[in-house]
Amino acid sequence: MDSIIFDLDGTIWDPIDTVLGAWNSILTREEMNELTREELAATMGMQMDEVGMTLFPALNKERREQLIHECWSLETSFLAKRGGALYENVENVLAELSQKYKLYIVSNCQDGYIEVFYEYHKLEKYFLDFENPGRTSLSKGENINLVIERNSLSKPVYVGDTEGDLKAAKFAGIPFIYAKYGFGYASEYDEAVESFDELLRVFKA
């Protein structure tokens, strides 16, 4: 094992409260029903089309895409000012892992989202590269492969919290570590952790 590729939402941080404030401010303006934390959390890890269909099935495709773009744009602004909630001991764990492994992020998010995460929480120094569909228009599995190829990784693993993360890791042909404390569910995995700092146990084993 030479490297660790992380999902972001539900794996490294919980941005829901900040993101919910951004989305609901737009929905209120549009005289639409506000979302609950649970509704928004259920879309974590989805790409734009899936998010739109899940949250706004009554809208046509063009209107869904327009609304999602507006919400994503405002959430990036909100996160730049307020950040999200890092899981316990994230920086300490990243600092220790980065001494032995190369660290990366691949997330299903819009362009600029990971950069805001880096900037607010001052964590960019631990990661060597990142990718997302906002920049590439590729699936998560394809973006994982892109990071693997771009950085000449030979034995990476992927850490995530959803079935989609599992499928992406399988697509890339790499082991999957399931973050059980996150937002989703994974039907199978190579390892599972109950907290972020438990990754130290997995990677020391």
Rank of each mutant, 00 (worst) to 15 (best):
residue 125 K to Q: 12
residue 94 L to M: 13
residue 156 P to N: 09
residue 70 E to N: 08
residue 199 L to V: 09
residue 159 V to D: 02
residue 59 L to D: 00
residue 155 K to L: 11
residue 93 V to K: 03
residue 98 S to V: 00
residue 21 G to C: 11
residue 26 I to G: 02
residue 198 E to F: 10
residue 145 N to R: 14
residue 89 N to I: 06
residue 141 G to I: 05
residue 157 V to W: 01
residue 94 L to C: 08
residue 162 T to F: 05
residue 9 D to Q: 11
residue 22 A to P: 00
residue 80 A to L: 12
residue 38 E to N: 13
residue 201 R to C: 13
residue 99 Q to T: 06
residue 182 G to K: 11
residue 39 E to K: 14
residue 19 V to H: 02
residue 194 E to G: 14
residue 159 V to W: 01
residue 108 N to P: 01
residue 161 D to E: 07
residue 36 T to N: 07
residue 179 A to N: 03
residue 102 K to Y: 04
residue 84 G to D: 02
residue 172 A to F: 01
residue 200 L to C: 13
residue 97 L to T: 04
residue 165 D to T: 07
residue 148 I to T: 05
residue 122 K to A: 14
residue 93 V to Y: 03
residue 34 E to Y: 09
residue 80 A to H: 06
residue 83 G to K: 03
residue 57 P to R: 05
residue 16 I to T: 11
residue 156 P to E: 10
residue 84 G to M: 05
residue 183 F to V: 07
residue 140 K to R: 14
residue 128 L to E: 11
residue 46 M to G: 05
residue 158 Y to I: 12
residue 82 R to E: 13
residue 13 W to D: 05
residue 187 S to Q: 13
residue 150 R to P: 10
residue 147 V to L: 10
residue 161 D to F: 04
residue 163 E to F: 04
residue 199 L to D: 06
residue 165 D to H: 06
residue 3 S to Y: 01
residue 199 L to M: 10
residue 183 F to C: 05
residue 34 E to S: 13
residue 136 T to K: 09
residue 71 C to R: 00
residue 80 A to K: 15
residue 62 E to T: 11
